[in-house]
Amino acid sequence: MALTTADVARLAELARIALTPEELERLAPQLDVILDAVASVSEVATADTEPMSHALPLTNVFRDDVVTPSLPAAAVLAGAPSVEDGRFRVPRILGEGA
């Protein structure tokens, strides 16, 4: 078994996804099967093969530094879950007693 339930719980924590115990029981075996199936890539990936990250030969794109209009703040804040004084209102970002 490549992935244990404990591994999946740790990965979900890193990915900031709260999983219920039922979800963990359901997803962990599926993820193990998926990972096992995709492991075949290492069979053909030899040391002399150059990795390819993108379909296009990318080069940096430059443009003139021209001022263009931005979205109005009100339009952006309209989609926010919580707003206060023209700003995003967010839960506390420091731990208790910090």
Binding site: V41, V44, A45, E50, P51
Partner: peptide, 10 residues
């Protein structure tokens, strides 16, 4: 995983 997959992509 990711590294090998990128080689397969090539």
């Amino acid at each position: 995983y990711y590294g090998s997959a990128q080689k397969v992509r090539r």
